[in-house]
């Protein structure tokens, strides 16, 4: 099983790469809008998460409230990835 700490580390590393920031500058409870990630950065980060964890993230840029995958903060992304990994294993 992939642990929560490992997922959080990967999420932060992927966001850091998109934002051109050192990972330690991204807090574990950071909100994505506060980080200033643009729309292309978002879809690139989601692609990286899918590749890293072999999951399919149900994300459509045209649904502002994202009913299927909450991309609003680091903890929400981590929880979403955890859920998708669990579904994959199941």
């Amino acid at each position: 099983m992939t642990g929560r700490a490992e997922i959080e580390q990967a999420v932060i590393a992927i966001l850091a790469q998109q934002l051109l920031l050192p990972p330690e500058d991204i807090a574990a409870d950071a909100r994505i809008d506060d980080l200033g990630l643009d729309s292309l950065g978002k879809v690139e980060a989601i692609f990286a998460l899918e590749e890293r964890f072999d999951i399919q993230v149900p994300f459509n840029a045209n649904e502002p409230d994202q009913p299927d995958f909450d991309f609003s903060s680091v903890p929400r992304i981590v929880a979403g990835v955890e859920r998708l990994i669990a579904q994959r294993v199941a």
Binding site: V43, I46, F47, F59, N60, A61, N62
Partner: peptide, 8 residues
Amino acid sequence: EGLRVLAP
């Protein structure tokens, strides 16, 4: 698909 702009 990768751009996440297509409607399903």
